[in-house]
Design a binder for these strands. Structure first.
Lengths: 127, 127
DNA sequence: CTGGTAAATAGGAATATTACTATTTAAAAC
DNA sequence: GTTTTAAATAGTAATATTCCTATTTACCAG
Protein backbone atom coordinates (compact mmCIF):
# COMPACT_ATOMS: atom_id res chain seq x y z
CA UNK A 1 0.00 0.00 0.00
CA UNK A 2 1.10 3.48 -0.91
CA UNK A 3 4.75 2.51 -1.13
CA UNK A 4 5.04 1.56 2.51
CA UNK A 5 6.62 -1.71 3.48
CA UNK A 6 5.38 -4.16 6.03
CA UNK A 7 8.42 -4.77 8.19
CA UNK A 8 8.64 -7.00 11.26
CA UNK A 9 9.42 -3.95 13.39
CA UNK A 10 6.31 -2.23 12.17
CA UNK A 11 4.08 -5.26 12.64
CA UNK A 12 5.32 -5.90 16.14
CA UNK A 13 4.80 -2.33 17.25
CA UNK A 14 1.17 -2.68 16.25
CA UNK A 15 0.95 -6.04 18.00
CA UNK A 16 2.46 -4.68 21.18
CA UNK A 17 0.04 -1.79 21.27
CA UNK A 18 -2.82 -4.14 20.59
CA UNK A 19 -1.85 -6.55 23.33
CA UNK A 20 -1.13 -3.79 25.84
CA UNK A 21 -4.74 -2.68 26.07
CA UNK A 22 -3.54 0.69 27.29
CA UNK A 23 -1.50 3.62 26.11
CA UNK A 24 2.26 3.26 26.05
CA UNK A 25 5.17 5.65 25.83
CA UNK A 26 7.79 5.31 23.11
CA UNK A 27 10.21 4.04 25.72
CA UNK A 28 7.82 1.35 26.88
CA UNK A 29 7.19 0.23 23.34
CA UNK A 30 10.91 0.10 22.71
CA UNK A 31 11.52 -2.01 25.81
CA UNK A 32 8.87 -4.52 24.85
CA UNK A 33 9.92 -4.59 21.24
CA UNK A 34 13.49 -5.44 22.25
CA UNK A 35 12.35 -8.70 23.74
CA UNK A 36 11.39 -9.80 20.26
CA UNK A 37 13.91 -7.86 18.20
CA UNK A 38 16.90 -7.17 20.47
CA UNK A 39 18.67 -4.88 18.03
CA UNK A 40 15.79 -2.55 17.31
CA UNK A 41 16.63 1.10 17.72
CA UNK A 42 14.54 3.71 19.48
CA UNK A 43 14.63 5.76 16.32
CA UNK A 44 12.73 3.01 14.56
CA UNK A 45 10.06 3.17 17.22
CA UNK A 46 9.60 6.90 16.81
CA UNK A 47 9.75 6.74 13.03
CA UNK A 48 7.08 4.09 12.90
CA UNK A 49 4.84 5.71 15.46
CA UNK A 50 4.90 8.83 13.32
CA UNK A 51 4.08 6.89 10.22
CA UNK A 52 1.39 4.78 11.84
CA UNK A 53 -0.21 7.91 13.22
CA UNK A 54 -0.01 9.61 9.84
CA UNK A 55 -1.96 6.79 8.22
CA UNK A 56 -4.41 6.58 11.09
CA UNK A 57 -3.47 3.26 12.65
CA UNK A 58 -2.36 4.82 15.90
CA UNK A 59 -3.05 7.93 17.91
CA UNK A 60 -0.48 10.22 19.42
CA UNK A 61 -1.73 11.74 22.68
CA UNK A 62 0.28 14.62 24.08
CA UNK A 63 -0.04 14.80 27.84
CA UNK A 64 1.73 17.30 30.05
CA UNK A 65 4.13 14.61 31.22
CA UNK A 66 4.95 13.42 27.71
CA UNK A 67 3.55 11.61 24.71
CA UNK A 68 1.70 8.32 24.80
CA UNK A 69 0.51 6.16 21.93
CA UNK A 70 -2.44 3.89 21.43
CA UNK A 71 -3.71 1.59 18.75
CA UNK A 72 -6.69 3.00 16.92
CA UNK A 73 -9.45 0.61 17.84
CA UNK A 74 -12.27 3.00 17.24
CA UNK A 75 -11.82 4.08 13.67
CA UNK A 76 -14.49 6.74 13.81
CA UNK A 77 -13.17 10.25 14.06
CA UNK A 78 -12.78 11.40 17.62
CA UNK A 79 -10.61 13.42 19.97
CA UNK A 80 -9.37 13.24 23.53
CA UNK A 81 -10.12 14.75 26.89
CA UNK A 82 -7.66 14.27 29.69
CA UNK A 83 -7.26 15.15 33.31
CA UNK A 84 -4.50 17.64 34.05
CA UNK A 85 -3.90 15.99 37.43
CA UNK A 86 -4.01 12.21 36.98
CA UNK A 87 -3.79 12.26 33.17
CA UNK A 88 -6.67 9.86 32.73
CA UNK A 89 -7.62 9.93 29.04
CA UNK A 90 -11.12 9.72 27.62
CA UNK A 91 -12.00 9.47 23.94
CA UNK A 92 -14.74 11.89 23.01
CA UNK A 93 -16.78 11.38 19.89
CA UNK A 94 -16.88 15.05 19.24
CA UNK A 95 -15.24 17.31 16.74
CA UNK A 96 -16.43 20.86 17.18
CA UNK A 97 -16.81 22.04 13.60
CA UNK A 98 -15.34 19.64 11.06
CA UNK A 99 -17.32 21.36 8.32
CA UNK A 100 -15.88 24.76 9.04
CA UNK A 101 -12.16 23.99 9.04
CA UNK A 102 -11.67 23.98 5.30
CA UNK A 103 -13.51 27.23 5.02
CA UNK A 104 -11.37 28.82 7.71
CA UNK A 105 -8.18 27.62 6.05
CA UNK A 106 -9.51 28.82 2.71
CA UNK A 107 -9.82 32.36 4.00
CA UNK A 108 -6.07 32.52 4.13
CA UNK A 109 -5.46 30.71 0.87
CA UNK A 110 -4.66 27.45 2.60
CA UNK A 111 -5.73 24.01 1.53
CA UNK A 112 -6.68 22.12 4.68
CA UNK A 113 -4.54 19.13 5.55
CA UNK A 114 -5.43 18.36 9.14
CA UNK A 115 -6.44 19.64 12.51
CA UNK A 116 -5.64 19.07 16.14
CA UNK A 117 -8.06 19.32 18.99
CA UNK A 118 -8.02 18.25 22.62
CA UNK A 119 -9.70 19.16 25.86
CA UNK A 120 -8.00 19.40 29.22
CA UNK A 121 -9.96 19.15 32.44
CA UNK A 122 -10.06 17.82 35.95
CA UNK A 123 -11.78 14.51 36.46
CA UNK A 124 -14.27 13.65 39.17
CA UNK A 125 -11.66 11.71 41.15
CA UNK A 126 -9.27 14.65 41.23
CA UNK A 127 -11.65 17.37 42.30
CA UNK B 1 0.69 39.01 41.54
CA UNK B 2 -0.48 35.50 42.38
CA UNK B 3 2.77 34.62 44.09
CA UNK B 4 4.87 34.95 40.95
CA UNK B 5 8.04 36.99 41.08
CA UNK B 6 9.20 39.49 38.53
CA UNK B 7 12.75 38.39 37.84
CA UNK B 8 15.18 39.95 35.37
CA UNK B 9 15.26 36.68 33.43
CA UNK B 10 11.52 36.72 33.09
CA UNK B 11 11.34 40.36 32.08
CA UNK B 12 14.02 40.03 29.47
CA UNK B 13 12.43 37.00 27.86
CA UNK B 14 9.33 39.06 27.33
CA UNK B 15 11.40 41.97 26.01
CA UNK B 16 13.26 39.74 23.59
CA UNK B 17 10.07 38.29 22.22
CA UNK B 18 8.61 41.77 21.93
CA UNK B 19 11.61 43.16 20.08
CA UNK B 20 11.92 40.12 17.81
CA UNK B 21 8.69 40.77 16.00
CA UNK B 22 8.58 37.15 15.02
CA UNK B 23 8.37 33.73 16.59
CA UNK B 24 11.46 32.31 18.23
CA UNK B 25 12.58 28.89 19.36
CA UNK B 26 13.68 28.27 22.93
CA UNK B 27 17.26 28.04 21.69
CA UNK B 28 17.08 31.40 19.95
CA UNK B 29 15.64 33.02 23.02
CA UNK B 30 18.38 31.50 25.12
CA UNK B 31 21.10 32.76 22.79
CA UNK B 32 19.75 36.31 22.84
CA UNK B 33 19.14 36.23 26.55
CA UNK B 34 22.75 35.24 27.18
CA UNK B 35 23.95 38.49 25.71
CA UNK B 36 22.29 40.26 28.61
CA UNK B 37 22.57 37.59 31.28
CA UNK B 38 25.53 35.39 30.37
CA UNK B 39 24.89 32.79 33.05
CA UNK B 40 21.26 32.13 32.29
CA UNK B 41 20.39 28.48 31.84
CA UNK B 42 18.28 26.96 29.12
CA UNK B 43 16.13 25.41 31.80
CA UNK B 44 15.17 28.88 32.95
CA UNK B 45 14.06 29.72 29.43
CA UNK B 46 11.82 26.69 29.22
CA UNK B 47 10.48 27.14 32.72
CA UNK B 48 9.53 30.71 32.04
CA UNK B 49 8.05 30.05 28.64
CA UNK B 50 5.80 27.50 30.28
CA UNK B 51 4.77 29.92 32.97
CA UNK B 52 4.27 32.83 30.61
CA UNK B 53 2.13 30.66 28.38
CA UNK B 54 0.13 29.42 31.33
CA UNK B 55 -0.77 32.97 32.33
CA UNK B 56 -1.44 33.98 28.74
CA UNK B 57 1.47 36.31 28.06
CA UNK B 58 2.95 34.09 25.39
CA UNK B 59 1.82 31.46 22.96
CA UNK B 60 3.41 28.11 22.38
CA UNK B 61 3.07 26.99 18.76
CA UNK B 62 3.91 23.40 17.99
CA UNK B 63 5.14 22.99 14.42
CA UNK B 64 6.29 19.74 12.88
CA UNK B 65 9.90 20.90 13.11
CA UNK B 66 9.64 21.94 16.74
CA UNK B 67 8.13 24.49 19.06
CA UNK B 68 8.22 28.25 18.60
CA UNK B 69 7.08 30.97 20.95
CA UNK B 70 5.58 34.40 20.44
CA UNK B 71 4.54 37.27 22.61
CA UNK B 72 0.79 37.59 22.90
CA UNK B 73 0.10 40.89 21.20
CA UNK B 74 -3.48 40.13 20.31
CA UNK B 75 -5.09 39.34 23.61
CA UNK B 76 -8.35 38.20 22.10
CA UNK B 77 -8.81 34.46 22.01
CA UNK B 78 -7.55 32.91 18.82
CA UNK B 79 -5.81 29.88 17.37
CA UNK B 80 -3.29 29.10 14.67
CA UNK B 81 -3.18 27.78 11.14
CA UNK B 82 0.14 26.77 9.68
CA UNK B 83 1.55 25.43 6.47
CA UNK B 84 2.89 21.90 6.68
CA UNK B 85 5.51 22.71 4.05
CA UNK B 86 6.95 26.15 4.82
CA UNK B 87 5.55 26.41 8.35
CA UNK B 88 4.17 29.89 7.82
CA UNK B 89 1.88 30.64 10.76
CA UNK B 90 -1.38 32.57 10.62
CA UNK B 91 -3.46 33.60 13.61
CA UNK B 92 -7.11 32.80 13.07
CA UNK B 93 -9.76 34.51 15.13
CA UNK B 94 -11.80 31.40 15.27
CA UNK B 95 -12.56 28.92 17.98
CA UNK B 96 -14.95 26.30 16.72
CA UNK B 97 -17.26 25.78 19.69
CA UNK B 98 -16.04 27.45 22.84
CA UNK B 99 -19.52 27.13 24.32
CA UNK B 100 -19.63 23.40 23.87
CA UNK B 101 -16.34 22.38 25.48
CA UNK B 102 -17.50 22.57 29.07
CA UNK B 103 -20.55 20.57 28.25
CA UNK B 104 -18.47 17.91 26.52
CA UNK B 105 -16.10 17.70 29.46
CA UNK B 106 -19.07 17.60 31.81
CA UNK B 107 -20.42 14.50 30.16
CA UNK B 108 -17.47 12.61 31.54
CA UNK B 109 -17.50 14.28 34.93
CA UNK B 110 -14.65 16.61 34.03
CA UNK B 111 -14.37 20.26 34.92
CA UNK B 112 -12.97 22.02 31.88
CA UNK B 113 -9.55 23.60 32.30
CA UNK B 114 -8.41 24.31 28.76
CA UNK B 115 -8.40 23.26 25.16
CA UNK B 116 -6.03 23.02 22.24
CA UNK B 117 -6.89 23.60 18.65
CA UNK B 118 -4.88 24.16 15.50
CA UNK B 119 -5.29 23.78 11.77
CA UNK B 120 -2.67 22.44 9.41
CA UNK B 121 -2.77 23.23 5.72
CA UNK B 122 -0.79 24.08 2.63
CA UNK B 123 -0.43 27.72 1.84
CA UNK B 124 -0.88 29.34 -1.57
CA UNK B 125 2.88 29.65 -2.08
CA UNK B 126 3.45 25.95 -1.45
CA UNK B 127 0.77 24.52 -3.67
C1' DC C 1 15.48 48.97 56.56
C1' DT C 2 15.73 43.94 58.06
C1' DG C 3 14.61 39.18 58.38
C1' DG C 4 11.79 35.28 56.78
C1' DT C 5 10.06 32.50 53.14
C1' DA C 6 8.40 30.71 49.06
C1' DA C 7 9.70 31.15 44.35
C1' DA C 8 13.24 31.11 41.03
C1' DT C 9 17.82 30.19 39.42
C1' DA C 10 22.28 27.91 37.73
C1' DG C 11 24.46 23.96 36.78
C1' DG C 12 24.72 19.48 35.81
C1' DA C 13 22.54 15.18 34.73
C1' DA C 14 18.88 12.48 32.79
C1' DT C 15 15.30 11.78 29.16
C1' DA C 16 13.04 12.45 24.97
C1' DT C 17 13.22 13.16 20.24
C1' DT C 18 15.29 13.87 15.83
C1' DA C 19 19.07 13.78 12.29
C1' DC C 20 22.62 11.44 9.51
C1' DT C 21 24.61 7.72 6.95
C1' DA C 22 26.03 3.33 5.44
C1' DT C 23 23.76 -1.00 5.09
C1' DT C 24 19.86 -4.05 4.73
C1' DT C 25 15.45 -5.51 2.99
C1' DA C 26 10.44 -5.74 1.31
C1' DA C 27 8.20 -5.72 -2.66
C1' DA C 28 7.69 -4.87 -7.43
C1' DA C 29 9.45 -5.89 -12.12
C1' DC C 30 11.50 -8.96 -14.94
C1' DG D 1 13.71 -17.26 -8.92
C1' DT D 2 16.71 -13.10 -9.78
C1' DT D 3 17.34 -8.26 -10.25
C1' DT D 4 16.33 -3.68 -9.05
C1' DT D 5 15.17 0.01 -6.20
C1' DA D 6 13.00 2.83 -3.00
C1' DA D 7 11.95 2.35 1.80
C1' DA D 8 13.44 1.08 6.25
C1' DT D 9 16.84 -0.02 9.67
C1' DA D 10 20.75 0.10 13.20
C1' DG D 11 23.93 2.71 15.21
C1' DT D 12 25.71 6.85 16.42
C1' DA D 13 25.52 11.65 17.17
C1' DA D 14 23.09 15.83 17.86
C1' DT D 15 19.17 18.51 19.80
C1' DA D 16 15.39 19.38 22.61
C1' DT D 17 13.28 19.17 26.90
C1' DT D 18 12.85 18.02 31.64
C1' DC D 19 14.53 16.83 36.30
C1' DC D 20 17.20 17.49 40.61
C1' DT D 21 19.45 20.06 44.17
C1' DA D 22 21.93 23.45 46.53
C1' DT D 23 21.94 28.35 46.40
C1' DT D 24 20.08 32.85 45.49
C1' DT D 25 16.55 36.36 45.34
C1' DA D 26 12.05 39.01 44.99
C1' DC D 27 8.82 40.38 47.92
C1' DC D 28 6.08 40.49 52.04
C1' DA D 29 5.65 41.50 57.04
C1' DG D 30 7.33 43.66 60.92
Amino acid sequence: MKGYKITPQRQKIVEILGRAGCRLTAREIHQRLRKELPAVSIDTVYRNLHLLSAVGLTHHIQLASGAVYELTTDLSHHHHLYCVDCEKVVCIKYCPDLQGYSEQAGRYGFELVGHTFALQGRCSDCR
